[in-house]
Design a protein around this nucleic acid. Structure first.
Lengths: 276, 276
DNA sequence: GCAGCCTGTGAAGATCCTGTGACCGCGGCG
DNA sequence: CGCCGCGGTCACAGGATCTTCACAGGCTGC
């Protein structure tokens, strides 16, 4: 299982990537006094290195990144959704700020800016949790039921055969599988897989879940992997399909409606259903 | 148990407390377009009312609150630590902003400010909160009697098996369980779970309590969890079903839906009531 | 013991949510 | 240039869930 993270929290480690050396100096002095560990970066550090740093927060000046700033920002947000990220720039337009925030930045400050405020903002962002939960599930392989999700191949396999997932499908299943059986709301799923805020009414998640289910079912008919929680979202968990003697029933969700006084005791234990 | 705030919910509901009607108008129009539910507040709304609103975010202009702004802010942060809070003001000094952020505000924007940016910031805060919540969710499990209420699954379990609660049912039981054994009046329950004032004569709470009792009894027959306080409301507490050694079962108003129409048994005593 | 309000039940609709299949635009490839 | 795989959007249909009602039985207060 991939999952989670470092949870523990040594001292807050913050990375600052900014071109204004004077500003950085004042800032680091202040951080020192507060007992924060800090790293000063001087350019676009590859995301993998960021992951390895186990940061507690990341302050970045887009100007220092160069022309690829946006894609860099997007990548950081995608790979490290749990990393508190504060963008710090000189001039910037409303549109830029909105774009950055929607991509996943947690805050955006415009210089000139008082170091104390920047620190307060970083604190505010990371306040309630000190988990550099690197979803960096990146390098490993997850096995669930009959399938195997290999990050290094961007593909999932059943019984050794590729399931032929497209890129999005793969990202979706990987994200779900990495959640460790928790129910994830559509918005969270969207945010993590697509990398930006979900528009109201967007059904993409549902559609891809269907595509995934179809392929999974074809590859591994005896198991169900993605469960719907009505009114909430989806949950990933490999569960064997309990088939009551009947024939059909690929459907899965169906068995027992509820308070129904009649039926009961068919399945010795709860199989697939979760909530709905 | 974290508090209820915005469980996870329906459409994002945001409260805006700002004196600049023009700004508010533009903002609400924008929110409408995005499909967000919104409430406009015109002054310092008591924290209890905020709790009942089940907000997904709160934008507040300190100037509108008056001289007690700071203590108000502090109170809101203390009572609703999970509520995404964005302060919005006209002029402000670095010291004020730092103070506000330290107190618990998630962001602080200074007008003039483009509505779009404010919205993007609110979204960013909400997103961050949600991620944090989902990680912390694991710890958010309440156990009572034989059942276990898991926030990360939006579901309750008895003996490891899902009780198949629907979303509302789950929110209701979670809310009741979070009350720590206090008797809650219907109105309060309704406010907290549904998020708005209960219409006179609305029986929804009763209906859902029944549904819950039915499912709980099916899953855990030896315990009673929801107790009626006649003329008052309901109280959640796991109590073993008192079995009178002899024949009849304790009458307990929630006796048993199953065999139903048959038994009646003079209730030797009412085990359920407490004070009323 | 009686009248009157309060709560427990069941069931019928009204609503909202998710599953589907079809359709479109894009970009890579032959 | 046409074909094809992939992402993304729509509108519709089937269900699941939520509300609302009407009725019956159980408390309370007198």
């Amino acid at each position: 299982m991939t999952d989670v993270s470092n949870g523990a929290a040594q001292r807050a480690r913050i990375a600052v990537s900014d071109g204004d050396t004077g500003f950085v100096q004042v800032l680091t002095k202040r951080l020192d006094r507060l007992g924060w560990e800090h790293v000063v970066l001087t350019g676009a550090v590859p995301v993998e290195r960021l992951v390895a740093m186990r940061l507690g927060a990341f302050v970045v000046d887009l100007a220092l990144i160069g022309p690829d700033a946006w894609s860099y920002l997007e990548k950081v947000c995608r790979e490290l959704p749990a990393l508190p990220l504060v963008v710090c720039t000189g001039q910037s337009t409303v549109a830029q700020r909105v774009r950055g925030l929607r991509l996943g930045a947690d805050d955006w400050v415009t210089k000139p800016c008082h170091p104390e405020e920047l620190i307060a903002r970083v604190e505010a962002v990371g306040r309630r949790r000190r988990l550099a939960a690197s979803v960096a599930a990146a390098a490993d392989t997850v096995v669930a039921g009959e399938i195997e999700i290999r990050a290094d191949q961007f593909q999932a396999f059943a019984d050794g055969r590729s399931i032929d997932l497209t890129r999005r499908e793969f990202e979706l299943i990987q994200m779900l599988a990495a959640a460790g059986g928790r129910v994830l709301e559509r918005e969270e799923i969207y945010q993590r897989v697509w990398g930006y805020a979900m528009a109201h009414g967007d059904r993409s998640v549902d559609v891809f879940v269907r595509k995934l289910r179809t392929k999974l079912q074809r590859a591994s008919p005896k198991w169900t992997y993605i469960h719907t929680h009505f009114g909430v979202g989806y949950r990933f968990a490999a569960e064997p399909v309990v088939e009551v003697a009947s024939r059909e029933a690929s459907g899965a969700r169906s068995s027992d409606p509820g308070p129904a006084p009649a039926r009961r005791a068919a399945p010795a234990r709860k199989p697939v259903r979760a909530c709905a």
